[in-house]
Design a protein around this nucleic acid. Sequence first.
DNA 1: CGTCACTTTCAATTTCTTCTGAAACTTCTG
DNA 2: CAGAAGTTTCAGAAGAAATTGAAAGTGACG
Lengths: 204, 204
Amino acid sequence: MANVETKQLTEAQDRFVAAWGKMGTAWGISRTMAEVHALLYITGEPLCTDDVMERLQISRGNASMSLRALLEWGIVERVHRRGDRKEYFHAEQDVWVLFRAIVRERMKREVDPMRASLYEIRDMTSERAGERGGKDAKDPALAAHNKRIDSMLEFLETMEKMSASFVSPAGRGLQAAAKILGFVGGRAEPRPTGSKPDSEREAG
Amino acid sequence: MANVETKQLTEAQDRFVAAWGKMGTAWGISRTMAEVHALLYITGEPLCTDDVMERLQISRGNASMSLRALLEWGIVERVHRRGDRKEYFHAEQDVWVLFRAIVRERMKREVDPMRASLYEIRDMTSERAGERGGKDAKDPALAAHNKRIDSMLEFLETMEKMSASFVSPAGRGLQAAAKILGFVGGRAEPRPTGSKPDSEREAG
DNA sequence: CGTCACTTTCAATTTCTTCTGAAACTTCTG
DNA sequence: CAGAAGTTTCAGAAGAAATTGAAAGTGACG
C-alpha cells in the first residue's frame, strides 16, 4: 500500500508534537499550546480548528484558546480560503523568526515586569527614602542590599538591550551574528546517519 | 528606634523574594525554589535550613528539597562554620555567574533531550528508513517534513554552540561580548520616577 | 433580518504539581 | 556505643493549572 510512507510521516509528526509539547512545559508554555504550534509547524499547511481538535484529541474550547494565544504570540497567522467560511491557521516556518518572536514576547511578559518591580524595590531603600540622615553610607547592610538590587537591575538592562537589538531592528540580528561568528554551518559533526549538505536555507 | 531601617530592609527583601519567585514560575522553576534562592541571594549571607523555613514559612521537607535542588543547579553552595554542626547555604553573588549556571543547566536539561528526540525523529523518515525505493525525492510531503526537522535541528545546534561558547570556556563569554558591543554601561535612560543620578554603579 | 456556520467564553471538573509533616536515616560527640 | 543534632525521604493533603463542553456570541449570506 502507498500508505507506508504516510503512516511513517504521521508517526513522525506525532513524535515531534509530543517532544515539542514536553519542551514547552519546561519553558512555561502550556503543553497543549505548544502541541498545537508543533502540529501547525510540522504539517506546514494551514489547518482549521476541527483539524487540530481531531488530530490532537482536544476539546473545541481548548483548541480555540490555544490558537488564539498563538496568534497573540505572533507565531501563527490566520488564513482564509476563498469560498470557505472557516478560518485556517498557519505557523511561521522560519525557525529564526519563530525564535525572535518568542524572545520578544517572553521579554515583554516576564522580564519587563521584573525590572519594574526591581525599580520599585530599589526606591524603597534608596537613600532618599531614608531621608532623615541625608547621608548615604549609613547602614552598611542597606548599602549592600542596594548594591545587589542594582547589579540585578544592571544585568536585566543589559539583557534587555541585547535582546532588543537581536530581536527587532532590521530583524535578523542574532542570526547574522551567529553566521558571522561562525556558529552556523550545518551539522555539528557529520553524524553517521544523515549527511545532506546544507543545501536549503533562507526559508521565509 | 534603630529598626526603621531594618524594617525597610526586611520589607524590601520580602518584595524581592516575591518578585523572584513569581518570575521563577514563569520559567519553569518551582516558586519555592526560586524564593529560597532569592532569599539567599538578597541577604547575601549563609543561612541554615531553619532560617529559611522560618523566613519563608515553609516546611522542613520543602526547604530541604529546594536547597538541594539549588545545590544541584550549582548556584548555591554549602558553608560550614567551625564549632557549628549545622550546614549553611550561600548563594552565588555574581549575577553573571548565576546566569551562566542557569543557561548551562537549562540547555542540559531541556534542549539536549529535545535535540536527541529530533535526531530520532529524523531517522524515522530519513531516506534510508524508506529503504525500498532507494531513491530519495520520492514523497514530496516526506521531503518537506524532513526539511522542517532539519532546520529545527540546525537551529538547536547553533544555539547549543553559541551558548556553549558563551557559557563555559574561560567563563565569561557573554559578559565580555556585552561589554565590547557596548550594551553595558549603566541605566538605560533616566526613568521619569527615580531621578536619582546614578551615583552608585559597579556592583560585582 | 433570520438563519446558518462557525468561534469564543467560562464555570465545573479533572489532572498535575507542589507542599507538608512525621518517620527514617546519617553523622558527629562524649 | 548511646544519644543528640541535623538532614532526607515520601505518602497523603492542599493547591494550582489545564481541560472540557455546553451556552453565548459573531457576522456573512440569502
